[in-house]
Design a protein around this nucleic acid. Sequence first.
DNA 1: GAATTTAGTTAGCTATGCTAACTAATTTCT
DNA 2: AGAAATTAGTTAGCATAGCTAACTAAATTC
Lengths: 168, 168
Amino acid sequence: MAPVKRKKTPRKSLPQTHRSATPAPPNPVSPSTGLADQLHSAAIHLLRRLRVRDIESGIGPAQLSALSVLVFGGPKSLGELAGAEQVRPPTMSRIVAGLERSGLARRQATEDGRRIRLEATPLGVTLMWEGRQRRVASLAKALDSLPATEQTQLHGAVTLLQRILLNL
Amino acid sequence: MAPVKRKKTPRKSLPQTHRSATPAPPNPVSPSTGLADQLHSAAIHLLRRLRVRDIESGIGPAQLSALSVLVFGGPKSLGELAGAEQVRPPTMSRIVAGLERSGLARRQATEDGRRIRLEATPLGVTLMWEGRQRRVASLAKALDSLPATEQTQLHGAVTLLQRILLNL
DNA sequence: GAATTTAGTTAGCTATGCTAACTAATTTCT
DNA sequence: AGAAATTAGTTAGCATAGCTAACTAAATTC
């Protein structure tokens, strides 16, 4: 049943074209498309690396992100939080339920009986700071070892990027 | 039951501390942590904006991302694809099932009967290119309107960032 | 040719996303 | 004041996506 014998999984069957073998754009594009693409790709890869660390926090990505808004942006209503996270109210409702269950956020009544005020608990604040540090630690370390000129260059670019993001 | 009357949802109950009200780091950190944080945040916000466009493609984010690996990186086995996407084999198995169901990818047998060869179909390639363009279009447009010096600056930073990502 | 290793799949759980439909509170309109 | 409309959140139900554990089948090793 196995006439062909081969050594320890030589992985030879697949062509392994593993490089950005961009097959050629099928139509003409804006001049900055290449840069936009690279920026997009870099952002994806950056987050992919950093997100690995978040698994250690023990809560899911949506809960972690929502918590960070509460911790770094202050108390919010559910609708505001949903807006900030670009998620529908029912989704945020469930995310918040999870945060409450874990004791990371709490809800309080407001004068307006329809609305609720959500805020991070001390436990939530602590977890967020630790997670943030853990997440960014490897990147910060890499940046530390760059020459000052490159750090400056990167800083300028980030500032520029933030400005671009404002009116995107 | 409502003695206090107020006008059209004046949104006055919540403090609205909506600025990066960083509450003060609870412990000393690496000097580049601030820059790393900003980079992280910028990447998150960038992707959040761009990803909105992907909804139009009609397939989920995981399928879209896996398809992009097949389109831009060439055929892969399931395990390789799972590795590239940093996802477990069972997860990728289901993602691929979805891509096949939509006719965007197909599987082929290899000499090694255990492994499969996955590749994008022409339909998948087309969809990917269109999606990529749609996704990046708004960003490219924003970049186009920047002065040349800033475009150069950004390009240099992206190149630098790519280098950093290699050994992160 | 038996035992082990490797590649994928299946089953079953959780988390996240959505829309539709509901409840409750508030505001608006007579 | 009281009915109607609007607004904020929740509940129900569906799909995608992530995981581990356990299984099947093929290939390699002993």
